Each structure stands twice: as structure tokens, then as C-alpha cells.
Amino acid sequence: MQKIYIASIFLIGLFLTACQQGDPNTNIDEKEQTTQQEQQADQSVPKKETAKTEEQDNASDGSNDNESAKADDSTNEEDKQKEIDKHIAKVEKSTGLHVVDNPESPEVYVNKQRTLPEGYVPPNLVVPDVSHYSSEGSPKRQLQKVAADALEQLFAEADQQGIGLVAVSGYRSYERQKQIYESAVANKGQEHADKFSARPGTSEHQTGLAMDVASATETAATLLEQSFKQTDAGAWLAENAHNFGFIIRYPEGKNEITGYNYEPWHIRYVGKEIATEIYNKDITLEEYFGYDY
């Protein structure tokens, strides 16, 4: 009986020990569950970091887009400023001509692509006190005052050096230029007219800053001819006009740039600084400004 009692106690002890250790399969499941949770936790970290990285990349892309937009805006502003510097008020839809916005300035720049505003008449037109070829009271005698004063100085210096000059044609209205151009086309054809005569609105004479000059000894037969270059007066004018703020507007060999054939008689007031630079560099007004239109 005592032996049976002891054996029973021993079996009960084994049973309790087994309960305390638990089911081995249960322990394995718990370990696997723990491992999975740890793996999930480990995987969740890089996901957050990836999300942050993507947000940073998106923010960076947005920043780059903003910088590109700002750069484009800056470029547009620079282009706009360049157009302002070129003194273009607008472009005529019907002709494609660029209308200048500084017609009264000595630096106004007109040619076959650039035109004066419609109806423009220069202010302060006066008659310079020099010898004139045209009759008294003719608008051809007129220039803007700043150009008239400079022309008087130029003529006075030429006279002191024994060179006789005469002013042939200065200011010319739009209407008068229209008549001259249409007459040239009718008599000599469009191609010839475009080489020597400006279309109305694009003539420098309308600015009141240009004057056609001749030798005082010339006759009507040789007036405003390229042979003027070969005269003492023509040679002197070419070498000294810049000292008084004038340039030979359409120099020899530059017709592909200016659009007009050589006119040694046509001087244009631009001021001493610009005139001197153009003379020293042997360039045209187009080349000085750096653009054709």
C-alpha cells in the first residue's frame, strides 16, 4: 500500500512538470509569431524611411520645378528688357515693321525694319545758319535743334580749313517721302528705289537728324552722287564728321548691312560719343547697336 502511494505521488509530480514546460508545438508557434512580429517591425522601419525619401525627392523635384519656373521668368524678363533696350514700342501687324519708341532721341535708329510712329513730326525744328541749296522757307533746311547746332559747328570748321559745304536736304515729312519713294519706283523700278530711297516712315530725314551735304562748287548734275567722295569736300566730311557728332550713315561696302547703297553725302547726327566709336571701328549704326531691326 505504501509502495502504491509513493508511485502515485511520483506520477503526479511528472504530470505537474509536464504542465509547467508546456506544449512544444505551442512554444514553436509562439517563437514563430515572435519572429514574424520582429520581421514585420524590421520591415516597417525602411518603409518609413522610404516614404520620407520619396517625400524628400518630391520636395526636391518641386523645388527644381520652382527654380526652373523662376529661371524661365527671369529669361522672359531679360528678353523683355532687351526688347525695351531696342526701343521697340510695337510691331505693325500689316507690315511687320518695328515701331520705335524714342523718335525724338539722337540715338533713334530707323531702317528698312524699323519705322517711326505714325504721324511723327520732330520737335524743335530750326533752320541752321549755314549755306543752303534749297530755297528760303523750304522744310529741307530744317533739323532738330541739337543737330542744327552741330551742323553749324561742322560747317564753320570746314570753312576755316578752306572747304566749302552746302546743306542740300534735311527734314522730310512722311508725305514728302511717300512722293519721293513712289516717284523712284515709277521711274526706276522697285529694286532700284529700295537701294536708294526709304519707304515712308522709315526715312532718317523724317527724324530731323539727317542732312544731305554737297560741295559748294557742285552743279546740279553732280549733286548727291557717289563721286562726291572724290572731292575735297567729300573727303574732308568723311574724316571729320564724327568730331561734331555726325556719321556717314550709309558707308561704302556696307549695303548688305544697311540695306542702302553708298551715300557719301548723307550724314546723320548721333552725338560725338557714338559717332567717334563708329568712325574708329569703321562700322555702321546697325553694327553699333548689334541688331538689324
Rank of each mutant, 00 (worst) to 15 (best):
Y5F: 14
I9L: 13
I9P: 02
I12D: 09
I12G: 09
L14S: 09
P24D: 07
K31D: 14
E32M: 12
T34Q: 13
A41M: 09
A41E: 14
K47C: 09
Q56H: 09
S60T: 15
G62C: 09
S63H: 10
E67W: 15
S68G: 08
D72T: 14
E77L: 11
E78F: 11
E92I: 08
T95I: 06
G96F: 06
L97Y: 06
D101Q: 07
P103K: 02
N111Y: 04
Y120R: 05
S135E: 14
E136V: 09
S138M: 03
R141K: 13
Q160K: 15
Y171S: 03
E175A: 13
S183N: 13
V185T: 04
V185H: 06
N187K: 14
K188Q: 14
G189A: 06
H192M: 08
K195S: 09
S203H: 00
A216R: 07
L224W: 04
L224C: 02
L224G: 00
E225T: 11
E225L: 08
G234K: 01
A238Q: 10
I247F: 00
E252S: 09
K254V: 02
T258K: 01
P264H: 03
P264T: 00
W265C: 01
T276L: 01
K281W: 04
Y293R: 15
Y293N: 11
